[in-house]
Computed example of a mutant assay.
Amino acid sequence: MTIRNWAKFFFYALLVGGLVNGIFSLFIRWEFFQPYVTNGQWGEFFAGFLWMVFLGFTMSVIAQAGFFAYLTLHQVGVNIFKTLTLWNWVQIVLIAITLFDIVFFRFAPSVDTTQDWLFYIGLLVVLVFGSVATAIQKVKMTGKKHVLVSALFFMIVITTLEWTIALMGRDANIDQYVALLLFPLLAVNAYQLLVLPKYNEQSEIDRQKLEARRKARREQAKNA
């Protein structure tokens, strides 16, 4: 990917994270915004909203770092296990381990009531459903069925690792942040997975145009 297209990729992924986090914060953390709305304190309201957007930017940067780390991991995995089929089976096992870990070692310590369980299981459903939907769309876009497992691995395992920042917290409002931070991570990771090929293709077109311009200038220099 060229630097120009990487900058676009980074900027739009940043916007996705910021906007998604800002919008969902109005629902998930409404009790934070409600006093400002009730009292007509619109300056404080917009300051709080911008803070949520900035938090989304931070999650986007984390998600982008995780994405490029996964691209490296995927190549290493294929090289180590020699075949994509075997690497896919390894990824399936790691997906199962991740789901087990998130329920029994991340959710369970924070759960006290049935309502808490419903809350966390609901978040797990969002994670899995969003991951499956993204992976299916990736298969449709590429026409390659074998990418399903890799897409699921990235969306579930890597997103969970990035989400661990919130899951390990013990603040009084941690449940709200656990819920809130899942959405920008899912959105940014889905965006990255689905649009990266577009930027790679554009980068190849840009390189060809650049080479054509260089060739034209060399021809002009010879004829001068």
Rank of each mutant, 00 (worst) to 15 (best):
L123N: 10
G56V: 07
E219R: 12
F27I: 15
V126H: 05
G18R: 02
G40M: 11
I205V: 15
S203P: 01
F105N: 15
A216H: 04
I62H: 00
T85Q: 05
L55V: 08
V132Y: 06
A172Q: 13
F45A: 04
V188G: 08
F154W: 12
S60H: 00
Q75E: 12
V195C: 01
T114K: 09
N189A: 09
L196W: 10
T159N: 13
T134D: 03
P109R: 06
F100H: 06
Y199Q: 07
Q137V: 04
F49M: 05
T38R: 07
P184Y: 02
Y70L: 05
V178N: 10
E204K: 04
Q41W: 15
A190M: 05
F45D: 02
I62W: 06
F81R: 02
L15T: 02
A13M: 04
I156R: 06
Y36M: 14
I3T: 11
A96N: 01
E162I: 10
E31C: 00
V139Q: 09
I95K: 00
N173V: 11
A47I: 13
F11D: 01
W42D: 05
A63F: 04
H74A: 11
L186F: 09
Q115G: 14
T114F: 13
T142L: 10
Q202H: 13
F68C: 02
T114L: 14
R207Q: 11
E204V: 13
K140H: 04
Q137K: 12
I95V: 15
M155S: 15
L99S: 01
I165T: 09
A212Q: 12
F129H: 07
K8R: 12
F183P: 02
L181V: 06
I23V: 15
I62V: 15
F24V: 13
N5D: 11
L127W: 03
Y199R: 02
F100L: 14
A63E: 03
N173I: 09
G40K: 06
N223L: 14
D101E: 12
R213T: 05
K144T: 08
V195D: 04
L167S: 03
L99I: 13
D101T: 10
S110H: 15
F129G: 00
T113H: 09
K198Q: 12
V157F: 11
A7Q: 07
A166I: 06
N223T: 14
L118R: 10
G130S: 11
A216R: 09
L50T: 04
V128M: 08
Y36A: 12
H74V: 00
K145N: 06
L118S: 10
T113V: 03
V76C: 02
T142S: 14
F11T: 14
S25P: 00
F68I: 07
D206H: 09
A166N: 01
V20E: 01
F32W: 10
K8G: 01
W6V: 08
I121R: 01
